[in-house]
Amino acid sequence: MLEKGTTAPDFQLNATPDQKIKLSDFKGKNVILAFYPADWSPVCGDQMALYNEMLKYFSKHDAQMIGISVDSAWCHNAFQQDRKLHFPLLADFEPKGEVSKAYGVYDDEVGESKRALYVIDQEGKIAWSYLSPTAVNPGADGILNALEELEKK
């Protein structure tokens, strides 16, 4: 994974079939990148649904939540509508996993992103990162602690 203090690699990915989002669009804001294996996990309150419920805690720290997986923009679209998600899901779809690889969180064996979190500060530098075992949803306490640390600076 990328070291704390390094500049987060910029990227541009589809958020919807006809809209692209660039990391650098969010300069001046904190950004949370949540890489995850796949849409449609079969549990209540899966990782994305959980973050969806917590958006107001992130926005208190002027932080934008962004989910990234290798699912296509159409798949994200359906998932987002079904779960009523209020933050963008980006499709690391073509070339597959390119951004996940740039962030050191691609699992070659299964062809999916690992479950990994990055908090990027307002200058676009990595402030915090965490790699979770794929089967374990990491929750949000680490993210909030990292955002609070940033505010102390």
């Binding site: 549990v43 209540c44 309150g45 899966d46 990782q47 959980l50 419920e53 917590m54 805690y57 374990v136 949803n137 990491p138 929750g139 949000a140 306490d141 680490g142 909030l144």
Partner: peptide, 13 residues
Amino acid sequence: DFESGVRSGVNGT
């Protein structure tokens, strides 16, 4: 209670 869960690392119910 919800905020306490967020702080405590609740990752599902």
